[in-house]
Amino acid sequence: MALTTSTPRPPALRRGKRPAAPGELSKKVWATAVMWLLVVVYGFPVLWFLLSSFKPAGELFSYPLTLLPKNPTIEGFTQAWTSFDFAQYFLNTLIVAVAATVLTIVVSAACGYALAKYHSWWVKAFMICVLATTMLPAEVILSPLFLVVRDLGLYNSLSAVVVPAVITATGTFMFRQFFLTVPNDLLEAARIDGSGELSTFIRIMLPLSRPIMLTLAIFSFQWRWNDYIWPLVVLNDPNKFTLQIGVATIVGADNVNWSVLLGASVLSMIPLVAIYLLLQKYVMNADINAGLKD
């Protein structure tokens, strides 16, 4: 039983290192063509959005529509930057997103592991409970949830944004489904070695789940980064406001200042893309086959 190997193996599906077989080239052409077609389809609306953020307000809705800005300007960005305390809101959002992400990963990993590897009836019942958390529209429990947070004394603190968000069905199930694919032999072997259950989880299982951790980190970061109505309701002090609250002030009752809104949206997306690229690199390069073979 080979549990782990220290030598990195080529990850799944990466077979390009071998000398190309006769059909390989045409496969490459096809696959690349399909991918680029999808890139165009997915990218076109995004490109339109990005280029529009450089259009002056007068060009946004002129007819016929044009893809490229005629008189490119960065006024939307500068106005967005100055229309609220961008730096402070940015920092607050960063604190919230990082804290929530770390907690979410730890808690989801533990819970997902338990749901995958233990089979008492109450563990299974709890699995349904976790799923249930996604089943009510957020608005229904907004008011009652607010009272809970207030009664716990969390009102007007960043932790009020973080703590209720830590439980997530998506995260928990990501880990559960992952740990289902980890052979029980590994667990058994650890038990035979005399390793305690929790120590097995922390020492062996947790490190194995790195791609899931990283993927969930991307998710959680995005969720908290783009959170809006909950932070607005539980944060009272403008020094604690998060980025999306600031962005939302651009949308007025009767008017939307589109050029500023586009600028603000682009700015607020940059950190997410950076985080994604950073973490995704580790997911793609992860030597995760170690330990998963039976």
Partner: peptide, 24 residues
């Protein structure tokens, strides 16, 4: 072990889901 592993989620579930959901 499973109880410890799910404990935080269980606590959060009861506090931030069951409590408000029952109110609802």
């Amino acid at each position: 072990a499973p109880l410890v592993l799910i404990s935080i989620n269980l606590l959060l579930f009861v506090t931030f889901f069951v409590w408000p959901a029952v109110t609802g």
